[in-house]
Design a protein around this nucleic acid. Structure first.
Lengths: 158, 158
DNA sequence: CTACATTCGTTAGTGTCACGAACGTTAGGG
DNA sequence: CCCTAACGTTCGTGACACTAACGAATGTAG
Protein backbone atom coordinates (compact mmCIF):
# COMPACT_ATOMS: atom_id res chain seq x y z
CA UNK A 1 0.00 0.00 0.00
CA UNK A 2 2.94 2.26 0.65
CA UNK A 3 5.05 1.29 -2.35
CA UNK A 4 3.11 1.44 -5.58
CA UNK A 5 5.14 -0.22 -8.32
CA UNK A 6 3.12 1.52 -11.02
CA UNK A 7 5.00 4.42 -12.63
CA UNK A 8 2.24 7.05 -12.70
CA UNK A 9 -1.25 6.02 -13.72
CA UNK A 10 -2.31 9.59 -12.96
CA UNK A 11 -5.83 9.17 -14.16
CA UNK A 12 -7.31 12.33 -15.63
CA UNK A 13 -10.02 12.17 -12.97
CA UNK A 14 -7.46 12.24 -10.17
CA UNK A 15 -5.48 15.32 -11.16
CA UNK A 16 -5.87 17.73 -8.24
CA UNK A 17 -6.10 20.91 -10.29
CA UNK A 18 -8.88 19.37 -12.35
CA UNK A 19 -10.71 18.07 -9.30
CA UNK A 20 -10.53 21.46 -7.67
CA UNK A 21 -11.69 23.25 -10.80
CA UNK A 22 -14.64 20.90 -11.06
CA UNK A 23 -15.71 21.32 -7.46
CA UNK A 24 -15.21 25.07 -7.75
CA UNK A 25 -17.56 25.10 -10.73
CA UNK A 26 -20.19 23.20 -8.76
CA UNK A 27 -19.78 25.48 -5.76
CA UNK A 28 -20.04 28.58 -7.91
CA UNK A 29 -23.14 27.29 -9.58
CA UNK A 30 -24.81 26.50 -6.25
CA UNK A 31 -23.98 29.91 -4.81
CA UNK A 32 -24.91 31.82 -7.93
CA UNK A 33 -28.22 30.05 -8.34
CA UNK A 34 -29.31 31.08 -4.90
CA UNK A 35 -27.96 34.59 -5.06
CA UNK A 36 -29.50 35.11 -8.48
CA UNK A 37 -32.89 34.36 -6.94
CA UNK A 38 -32.29 37.40 -4.73
CA UNK A 39 -30.97 39.37 -7.72
CA UNK A 40 -27.45 39.41 -6.31
CA UNK A 41 -24.07 38.11 -7.31
CA UNK A 42 -21.28 36.76 -5.17
CA UNK A 43 -19.34 40.00 -5.38
CA UNK A 44 -22.15 41.80 -3.66
CA UNK A 45 -22.10 39.33 -0.84
CA UNK A 46 -18.32 39.45 -0.56
CA UNK A 47 -18.18 43.23 -0.36
CA UNK A 48 -21.05 43.52 2.10
CA UNK A 49 -19.51 40.85 4.31
CA UNK A 50 -16.06 42.43 4.19
CA UNK A 51 -17.62 45.69 5.35
CA UNK A 52 -19.66 44.02 8.06
CA UNK A 53 -16.73 42.08 9.45
CA UNK A 54 -13.90 44.59 9.31
CA UNK A 55 -15.64 47.92 9.01
CA UNK A 56 -15.61 50.74 6.49
CA UNK A 57 -12.73 50.90 4.04
CA UNK A 58 -11.45 52.42 0.83
CA UNK A 59 -12.11 50.70 -2.46
CA UNK A 60 -8.53 49.51 -2.73
CA UNK A 61 -8.71 48.07 0.76
CA UNK A 62 -11.94 46.29 -0.15
CA UNK A 63 -10.20 44.90 -3.21
CA UNK A 64 -7.61 43.28 -1.01
CA UNK A 65 -10.14 41.93 1.44
CA UNK A 66 -12.37 40.37 -1.15
CA UNK A 67 -9.98 39.50 -3.96
CA UNK A 68 -11.93 41.53 -6.48
CA UNK A 69 -9.83 43.60 -8.85
CA UNK A 70 -10.06 47.28 -8.19
CA UNK A 71 -11.17 47.84 -11.77
CA UNK A 72 -14.15 45.58 -11.22
CA UNK A 73 -14.86 46.97 -7.77
CA UNK A 74 -16.16 50.18 -9.32
CA UNK A 75 -19.17 48.56 -10.94
CA UNK A 76 -19.97 46.48 -7.87
CA UNK A 77 -19.99 49.56 -5.66
CA UNK A 78 -22.10 51.41 -8.19
CA UNK A 79 -24.72 48.70 -7.96
CA UNK A 80 -24.55 48.44 -4.19
CA UNK A 81 -24.69 52.20 -3.96
CA UNK A 82 -27.68 52.49 -6.28
CA UNK A 83 -29.52 50.10 -3.97
CA UNK A 84 -28.44 52.16 -0.96
CA UNK A 85 -26.66 49.21 0.62
CA UNK A 86 -23.43 51.20 0.88
CA UNK A 87 -22.48 54.84 0.89
CA UNK A 88 -19.53 56.22 -1.02
CA UNK A 89 -17.98 59.36 0.41
CA UNK A 90 -14.72 61.17 -0.18
CA UNK A 91 -12.15 60.59 2.55
CA UNK A 92 -11.33 63.94 4.14
CA UNK A 93 -8.02 62.57 5.43
CA UNK A 94 -6.87 61.39 2.00
CA UNK A 95 -8.72 62.87 -0.91
CA UNK A 96 -7.61 60.10 -3.25
CA UNK A 97 -9.71 57.66 -1.35
CA UNK A 98 -13.40 56.95 -1.11
CA UNK A 99 -14.70 55.68 2.18
CA UNK A 100 -17.25 52.92 1.70
CA UNK A 101 -19.72 52.54 4.53
CA UNK A 102 -22.32 49.86 5.12
CA UNK A 103 -25.84 51.18 5.63
CA UNK A 104 -28.50 49.64 7.84
CA UNK A 105 -30.24 48.27 4.77
CA UNK A 106 -26.93 46.92 3.60
CA UNK A 107 -26.54 45.07 6.86
CA UNK A 108 -29.97 43.52 6.50
CA UNK A 109 -29.26 42.68 2.90
CA UNK A 110 -26.02 40.99 3.93
CA UNK A 111 -27.77 38.85 6.51
CA UNK A 112 -30.29 37.74 3.95
CA UNK A 113 -27.62 36.83 1.43
CA UNK A 114 -25.63 35.12 4.16
CA UNK A 115 -28.48 32.70 4.68
CA UNK A 116 -28.53 31.86 1.00
CA UNK A 117 -24.79 31.38 0.86
CA UNK A 118 -24.84 29.20 3.96
CA UNK A 119 -27.50 27.03 2.36
CA UNK A 120 -25.30 26.63 -0.67
CA UNK A 121 -22.36 25.56 1.50
CA UNK A 122 -24.53 22.97 3.15
CA UNK A 123 -25.61 21.52 -0.16
CA UNK A 124 -22.06 21.59 -1.47
CA UNK A 125 -20.62 19.75 1.53
CA UNK A 126 -23.62 17.46 2.02
CA UNK A 127 -21.72 14.18 1.50
CA UNK A 128 -19.05 15.08 4.08
CA UNK A 129 -19.33 14.60 7.82
CA UNK A 130 -18.34 17.47 10.17
CA UNK A 131 -14.79 16.20 10.64
CA UNK A 132 -14.27 15.93 6.92
CA UNK A 133 -15.67 19.39 6.39
CA UNK A 134 -13.25 21.01 8.77
CA UNK A 135 -10.37 18.98 7.39
CA UNK A 136 -11.21 20.12 3.88
CA UNK A 137 -11.42 23.70 5.05
CA UNK A 138 -8.11 23.35 6.84
CA UNK A 139 -6.32 21.91 3.82
CA UNK A 140 -7.71 24.59 1.54
CA UNK A 141 -6.67 27.27 4.00
CA UNK A 142 -3.13 25.93 4.09
CA UNK A 143 -2.97 26.09 0.31
CA UNK A 144 -4.47 29.57 0.28
CA UNK A 145 -1.99 30.86 2.85
CA UNK A 146 0.93 29.34 1.03
CA UNK A 147 0.11 30.68 -2.44
CA UNK A 148 -0.19 34.27 -1.47
CA UNK A 149 1.47 37.21 -3.18
CA UNK A 150 4.79 37.54 -1.39
CA UNK A 151 4.93 33.93 -0.19
CA UNK A 152 4.87 31.88 -3.36
CA UNK A 153 8.52 30.84 -3.35
CA UNK A 154 11.21 31.79 -0.84
CA UNK A 155 13.83 30.95 -3.48
CA UNK A 156 12.80 33.99 -5.51
CA UNK A 157 12.54 36.92 -3.08
CA UNK A 158 13.06 39.26 -6.08
CA UNK B 1 -16.35 22.37 20.61
CA UNK B 2 -19.64 20.86 19.58
CA UNK B 3 -21.86 23.72 20.75
CA UNK B 4 -20.66 27.09 19.53
CA UNK B 5 -22.54 29.82 21.35
CA UNK B 6 -21.66 32.39 18.68
CA UNK B 7 -24.45 33.03 16.19
CA UNK B 8 -22.50 32.88 12.93
CA UNK B 9 -18.93 34.08 12.93
CA UNK B 10 -18.57 32.64 9.43
CA UNK B 11 -15.52 34.65 8.50
CA UNK B 12 -15.38 35.53 4.82
CA UNK B 13 -12.02 33.77 4.60
CA UNK B 14 -13.50 30.52 5.87
CA UNK B 15 -16.39 30.10 3.45
CA UNK B 16 -15.72 26.83 1.63
CA UNK B 17 -16.96 27.94 -1.76
CA UNK B 18 -14.69 30.98 -1.63
CA UNK B 19 -11.73 28.95 -0.45
CA UNK B 20 -12.24 26.47 -3.24
CA UNK B 21 -12.61 29.19 -5.84
CA UNK B 22 -9.42 30.82 -4.66
CA UNK B 23 -7.40 27.62 -4.73
CA UNK B 24 -8.90 26.76 -8.10
CA UNK B 25 -7.72 30.11 -9.43
CA UNK B 26 -4.21 29.48 -8.14
CA UNK B 27 -4.20 25.98 -9.60
CA UNK B 28 -5.43 27.23 -12.95
CA UNK B 29 -2.80 29.91 -13.04
CA UNK B 30 -0.02 27.45 -12.25
CA UNK B 31 -1.16 24.98 -14.89
CA UNK B 32 -1.80 27.61 -17.53
CA UNK B 33 1.54 29.32 -17.00
CA UNK B 34 3.40 26.11 -17.67
CA UNK B 35 1.24 24.98 -20.55
CA UNK B 36 1.41 28.40 -22.15
CA UNK B 37 5.18 28.06 -22.23
CA UNK B 38 4.61 25.04 -24.46
CA UNK B 39 1.96 26.93 -26.43
CA UNK B 40 -0.81 24.74 -25.09
CA UNK B 41 -3.91 25.14 -22.99
CA UNK B 42 -5.43 22.82 -20.47
CA UNK B 43 -8.06 21.64 -22.92
CA UNK B 44 -5.37 20.26 -25.16
CA UNK B 45 -3.90 18.28 -22.33
CA UNK B 46 -7.30 17.04 -21.22
CA UNK B 47 -8.28 15.79 -24.66
CA UNK B 48 -4.94 14.17 -25.38
CA UNK B 49 -4.99 12.45 -22.00
CA UNK B 50 -8.56 11.24 -22.40
CA UNK B 51 -7.58 9.69 -25.72
CA UNK B 52 -4.42 8.13 -24.30
CA UNK B 53 -6.20 6.65 -21.32
CA UNK B 54 -9.43 5.38 -22.80
CA UNK B 55 -8.75 5.20 -26.51
CA UNK B 56 -10.29 6.76 -29.59
CA UNK B 57 -13.75 8.25 -29.29
CA UNK B 58 -16.31 10.49 -30.89
CA UNK B 59 -16.34 14.19 -30.11
CA UNK B 60 -19.41 13.85 -27.94
CA UNK B 61 -17.77 11.06 -25.99
CA UNK B 62 -14.67 13.19 -25.49
CA UNK B 63 -16.91 15.94 -24.24
CA UNK B 64 -18.20 13.69 -21.51
CA UNK B 65 -14.78 12.41 -20.59
CA UNK B 66 -13.17 15.81 -20.30
CA UNK B 67 -16.05 18.04 -19.26
CA UNK B 68 -15.55 20.35 -22.23
CA UNK B 69 -18.74 21.48 -23.91
CA UNK B 70 -19.19 19.91 -27.28
CA UNK B 71 -19.48 23.38 -28.81
CA UNK B 72 -16.01 24.24 -27.57
CA UNK B 73 -14.60 20.85 -28.46
CA UNK B 74 -14.70 21.75 -32.14
CA UNK B 75 -12.07 24.48 -31.86
CA UNK B 76 -9.85 22.37 -29.61
CA UNK B 77 -9.88 19.52 -32.09
CA UNK B 78 -9.21 21.90 -34.94
CA UNK B 79 -6.09 23.09 -33.18
CA UNK B 80 -4.96 19.60 -32.22
CA UNK B 81 -5.69 18.41 -35.74
CA UNK B 82 -3.76 21.25 -37.36
CA UNK B 83 -0.77 20.23 -35.27
CA UNK B 84 -1.30 16.58 -36.28
CA UNK B 85 -1.68 15.45 -32.70
CA UNK B 86 -5.03 13.84 -33.50
CA UNK B 87 -6.79 12.62 -36.59
CA UNK B 88 -10.43 13.24 -37.30
CA UNK B 89 -12.17 10.68 -39.49
CA UNK B 90 -15.77 9.91 -40.27
CA UNK B 91 -17.13 6.89 -38.42
CA UNK B 92 -18.26 4.33 -41.02
CA UNK B 93 -20.53 2.67 -38.43
CA UNK B 94 -22.38 5.88 -37.58
CA UNK B 95 -22.00 8.61 -40.11
CA UNK B 96 -23.03 11.30 -37.65
CA UNK B 97 -19.88 10.70 -35.66
CA UNK B 98 -16.25 11.59 -36.12
CA UNK B 99 -13.71 9.19 -34.71
CA UNK B 100 -10.85 11.03 -33.03
CA UNK B 101 -7.58 9.13 -32.92
CA UNK B 102 -4.37 9.98 -31.13
CA UNK B 103 -1.29 10.06 -33.39
CA UNK B 104 2.24 9.10 -32.38
CA UNK B 105 3.16 12.76 -32.20
CA UNK B 106 0.08 13.36 -30.11
CA UNK B 107 1.23 10.74 -27.69
CA UNK B 108 4.65 12.35 -27.36
CA UNK B 109 3.04 15.73 -27.02
CA UNK B 110 0.83 14.42 -24.24
CA UNK B 111 3.78 13.04 -22.32
CA UNK B 112 5.52 16.37 -22.56
CA UNK B 113 2.49 18.27 -21.33
CA UNK B 114 1.97 15.68 -18.61
CA UNK B 115 5.34 16.59 -17.18
CA UNK B 116 4.41 20.23 -17.07
CA UNK B 117 1.05 19.53 -15.47
CA UNK B 118 2.64 17.24 -12.90
CA UNK B 119 5.11 19.99 -12.01
CA UNK B 120 2.21 22.35 -11.49
CA UNK B 121 0.49 19.88 -9.17
CA UNK B 122 3.65 19.59 -7.15
CA UNK B 123 3.93 23.31 -6.74
CA UNK B 124 0.26 23.62 -5.92
CA UNK B 125 0.39 20.95 -3.21
CA UNK B 126 3.85 21.87 -1.96
CA UNK B 127 2.75 22.74 1.59
CA UNK B 128 0.93 19.43 2.08
CA UNK B 129 2.50 16.13 3.10
CA UNK B 130 1.61 12.94 1.18
CA UNK B 131 -1.16 11.96 3.58
CA UNK B 132 -2.76 15.37 3.34
CA UNK B 133 -2.52 15.28 -0.43
CA UNK B 134 -4.38 12.02 -0.72
CA UNK B 135 -6.93 13.12 1.84
CA UNK B 136 -7.57 16.29 -0.13
CA UNK B 137 -7.91 14.30 -3.33
CA UNK B 138 -10.26 11.89 -1.61
CA UNK B 139 -12.51 14.63 -0.25
CA UNK B 140 -12.64 16.39 -3.61
CA UNK B 141 -13.46 13.12 -5.31
CA UNK B 142 -16.34 12.51 -2.92
CA UNK B 143 -17.75 15.93 -3.70
CA UNK B 144 -17.26 15.42 -7.42
CA UNK B 145 -19.03 12.07 -7.36
CA UNK B 146 -21.90 13.42 -5.32
CA UNK B 147 -22.58 16.48 -7.46
CA UNK B 148 -22.89 14.68 -10.71
CA UNK B 149 -25.70 15.06 -13.24
CA UNK B 150 -28.24 12.51 -12.14
CA UNK B 151 -27.07 12.25 -8.53
CA UNK B 152 -27.54 15.73 -7.14
CA UNK B 153 -30.46 14.99 -4.89
CA UNK B 154 -32.26 11.67 -4.44
CA UNK B 155 -35.29 13.62 -3.20
CA UNK B 156 -35.85 15.02 -6.66
CA UNK B 157 -35.68 12.11 -9.08
CA UNK B 158 -37.81 14.23 -11.46
C1' DC C 1 -42.77 2.39 -44.16
C1' DT C 2 -43.61 6.61 -42.09
C1' DA C 3 -43.36 9.97 -38.44
C1' DC C 4 -41.06 11.55 -34.51
C1' DA C 5 -37.61 12.14 -31.24
C1' DT C 6 -32.71 11.97 -30.47
C1' DT C 7 -27.82 12.32 -31.26
C1' DC C 8 -23.94 14.42 -33.51
C1' DG C 9 -20.95 18.07 -35.26
C1' DT C 10 -20.98 22.82 -36.05
C1' DT C 11 -21.68 27.93 -35.92
C1' DA C 12 -22.81 31.93 -33.54
C1' DG C 13 -23.68 34.40 -29.64
C1' DT C 14 -24.14 35.69 -24.43
C1' DG C 15 -22.53 36.66 -19.73
C1' DT C 16 -19.13 36.23 -16.18
C1' DC C 17 -14.82 36.81 -14.60
C1' DA C 18 -9.66 37.77 -14.15
C1' DC C 19 -6.52 40.90 -15.58
C1' DG C 20 -3.68 44.73 -17.97
C1' DA C 21 -3.08 49.62 -19.81
C1' DA C 22 -3.61 54.10 -19.28
C1' DC C 23 -4.98 58.58 -17.17
C1' DG C 24 -5.89 62.36 -13.97
C1' DT C 25 -5.80 63.26 -9.11
C1' DT C 26 -3.66 63.24 -4.72
C1' DA C 27 -0.18 62.20 -1.19
C1' DG C 28 4.38 61.60 0.65
C1' DG C 29 9.58 61.41 0.60
C1' DG C 30 14.08 63.05 -0.89
C1' DC D 1 10.17 70.99 -5.81
C1' DC D 2 10.39 66.79 -8.24
C1' DC D 3 9.61 62.04 -8.32
C1' DT D 4 7.32 58.07 -7.06
C1' DA D 5 3.42 55.66 -5.61
C1' DA D 6 -1.40 54.92 -4.49
C1' DC D 7 -6.18 55.71 -5.70
C1' DG D 8 -10.45 55.61 -8.50
C1' DT D 9 -11.90 55.13 -13.02
C1' DT D 10 -12.53 53.77 -17.94
C1' DC D 11 -11.69 50.74 -21.59
C1' DG D 12 -10.33 46.65 -23.58
C1' DT D 13 -8.85 41.60 -23.89
C1' DG D 14 -8.99 36.77 -23.48
C1' DA D 15 -10.46 32.46 -21.38
C1' DC D 16 -14.29 29.99 -20.13
C1' DA D 17 -19.16 28.14 -19.31
C1' DC D 18 -23.14 27.78 -21.42
C1' DT D 19 -27.44 28.33 -24.81
C1' DA D 20 -29.71 28.33 -29.13
C1' DA D 21 -30.24 26.79 -33.45
C1' DC D 22 -29.12 24.18 -37.70
C1' DG D 23 -28.66 20.22 -41.01
C1' DA D 24 -27.45 15.49 -41.28
C1' DA D 25 -27.91 10.89 -39.62
C1' DT D 26 -29.88 7.40 -36.65
C1' DG D 27 -33.19 4.79 -33.82
C1' DT D 28 -37.82 3.85 -32.61
C1' DA D 29 -43.05 3.62 -32.34
C1' DG D 30 -46.91 3.16 -34.71
Amino acid sequence: MSATPEPTPARLRAIPSRLIAGVAAVADRLVNERLAAADARKWHFAVLTALAEDGAASQAELSRRTGIYRSDMVAVLNELGDAAYVRRAADPADRRRNVITLTAEGRRRREHLDGLVTDAQRELLAPLDPDERSELTRLLTVLTEHHRPGHPDPRDPK
